[in-house]
Structure formats: C-alpha cells, structure tokens
Simulated assay, not measured.
Amino acid sequence: MSLPPSQQPTALVTGATGFTGWYVAEALARKQYKVRTLVRDAAKAGPLAELGYEIAIGDLRDAAAVARATEGCSHVFHIGALYREAKFGDEVYHQVNAGGTANVLDAALRHGARVVHCSTVGVHGDVEGVADEEAPFNPGDAYQTSKVESERLVAEYAARGLEVSCFRPAGIYGPRDTRFLKLFRTIRNRTFRMFGKGEIFYHLTFVEDLADGIVLLGEHPAAVGETFILTGPRYTTLNELVTSVARAVDVPPPRGRLPLPPLLAAAVLCETVCRPFGIEPPLHRRRCDFFTKSRAFSSEKARRLVGYAPKVELDEGLRRTAEWYFSQGMIA
C-alpha cells in the first residue's frame, strides 16, 4: 500500500550520481522514501530529476550547502566520496572524505537525522585470512587514510548522541559499474594478463544486495552505533574470479602469467610523470592492488545483528553485469 506524501520520510543521499549512491536512491524510492540528492555538478542532475528525486546542489566541502540539503530529512545516506584518482593530492582526499563527512554529521546532528556512513574495507589494508570488523586499521593510501579519519569522526558524533551506522563495502560490482569494465573487456578480447600467482583472495559484492543492506542499516534499531562489513555471499581467488568472468563473457579463461615487479615499477614511473601536471596516470600503484592485495571478509556481524542476507551469487552477478556491458556496447 502506498503511503501518502505527508507520511513518507525524506532521505538525503550523497553521491547519488555515482554507482552505489544511484542504487541506494532506487532502493529508498522502492521503500516509499522521498529521495533528496546532494549533487555537486548540476549538469549531472538531470537523470536523477527525471526519476522524481529532489535535487540539492552543493559540494560536501560546503558546510552551509550540506546543512540546507539535510534540513527536513529523517535519514542521510552518506555515500559520496572522492575515490582513488591519482591526479589528486592527499589533502584533497582529506578535505572531501573527512571534511565532507564532518559537515554531513554536523548537519544531521543539528537537524535530528539518522545517518548511514559509507567507509571501505580498505581501512584494513592488505588482510591475511578472512577479516572482520575487529581487524586493525592499516590504510595503504590517501583514500583509505581519509576513510579511517571519517570513521573516527563517526565515532565522535555517535558519542555526542547522533544515531549513526557505518559500513565497509568490498568490491562493488553490477550493471552501471565501469570500475570492473576493463577486466571484463580484456578477458573478452583475450588481452588480459595475470600478474603474479593469482592466488590472493578477492571478495565482490553485487550492488543491489549492498544497496538493500545499506537501507537496512538505516532502519534497523540494532544498527545504531555499530560498524559493519557488507560483502557478497562468498570470496574467491583471483584466478577463480578471472575464470568466472571469462564464463560470463563466453570465452575460455586466460592462461599464463607475468611477474609483478615490472608492473609495479611502471606504475611508479607513470605516477611520477603524470601527477605534477594533474593528469590521471594510465597506470598507478593503486590499480596494481588488484594483483597484490588479498581481500576476504566476513559479514557475519551484519547477518547476526540486522539480518543482512545477500542473495546474488557471484556467477549470477557476473552474468548480469556482462549482459549490461554487452547491451551498452561497452564490450562486443
């Protein structure tokens, strides 16, 4: 049964022009929230407005704009962040991801809104075995460090009485994603090369499962004051993942492998040449993490406390993602 507009809660979503934020907005709309989106670039707001979402123009770094966007909201889903673009200096990550989070938390506290904050499993760095929320912080770059800073701010505001939950997602993929497009494309056209042994773990999370979990954290009473890892049903080795993607794009799995050291050296060189000019390097060390950093995580806490239950198995999610790439002409 549809709720009358006067009874529909209003939720602000930051980062709704991005991949995960788009799905969070959709999930909220399905649950009859009025969706308001904070959009930095007005030129990108058109598709959101067409879906009936309210548009608030502003930058996360602008405290006044964030406060205006938050007014009248019962919930804030803070998904927006600056993500791993090597052309930016470390201070920009701090300004957007930590400073912007402080603005969101402050506005929510003043307006009485409940917050769900997006962090990353990257705060744990390169993990051994299967990590849970108790694994130590071990950030390896400016992005991950800024997310550690943002989590500390969340804890501070929770102590001040803000109703807030934090989640750490892993390997988000699905239709509309372009982060994993290169992997699918190179496997499809037989140009993919494995660097290293490929025996590290990789953990993917289908975006629709994640969005449902994020909304759940905004509604379940047991989520308040807690931090959760949200992942897909299972992790796999990198070799197994590549084989599964090959199956999704209907080609034989790639064979052979190359040594890691030359790749890492080339990444350092690209960063050194490009960064002074503000150019995004074609290869950088963070991209090499795909071949070097192990990622396997447990979502048991989220299952136990709030009933988080991802439904989309890896092969199905990869197939649905591949179908979307084919439909968009991104791979042929």
Rank of each mutant, 00 (worst) to 15 (best):
residue 20 T to D: 04
residue 28 L to Y: 06
residue 212 D to W: 04
residue 120 T to Q: 01
residue 96 V to P: 00
residue 114 R to I: 11
residue 281 P to T: 11
residue 210 L to R: 10
residue 26 E to M: 04
residue 158 A to G: 02
residue 256 G to N: 02
residue 31 K to W: 03
residue 95 Q to P: 00
residue 4 P to G: 11
residue 64 A to M: 09
residue 135 A to E: 09
residue 270 C to N: 04
residue 141 D to R: 02
residue 165 S to N: 04
residue 246 A to K: 03
residue 322 A to L: 01
residue 159 A to T: 02
residue 183 L to K: 01
residue 270 C to T: 01
residue 19 F to M: 04
residue 296 A to H: 06
residue 96 V to Q: 11
residue 314 L to R: 11
residue 233 P to R: 11
residue 119 S to P: 06
residue 173 Y to T: 04
residue 161 G to I: 13
residue 172 I to W: 05
residue 268 V to L: 01
residue 118 C to G: 07
residue 131 A to G: 12
residue 72 G to T: 05
residue 152 R to Q: 14
residue 44 K to Q: 15
residue 67 A to P: 08
residue 242 V to F: 09
residue 274 C to T: 05
residue 62 D to R: 09
residue 323 E to M: 01
residue 48 L to Y: 12
residue 309 A to S: 15
residue 184 F to E: 08
residue 40 R to N: 15
residue 302 A to H: 09
residue 46 G to E: 15
residue 109 L to K: 14
residue 167 F to K: 06
residue 267 A to S: 02
residue 321 T to A: 08
residue 190 R to S: 14
residue 216 L to S: 10
residue 163 E to C: 02
residue 250 D to M: 00
residue 284 H to I: 03
residue 179 R to T: 13
residue 158 A to F: 08
residue 229 I to C: 13
residue 85 E to K: 03
residue 80 G to E: 10
residue 325 Y to S: 03
residue 103 N to E: 11
residue 308 Y to E: 13
residue 121 V to W: 01
residue 13 V to M: 05
residue 268 V to T: 09
residue 83 Y to D: 00
residue 108 A to N: 13
residue 79 I to L: 05
residue 90 D to N: 04
residue 210 L to Q: 03
residue 90 D to E: 09
residue 75 H to D: 12
residue 191 T to D: 12
residue 216 L to T: 07
residue 3 L to R: 07
residue 63 A to H: 14
residue 48 L to E: 15
residue 54 E to M: 08
residue 186 T to V: 06
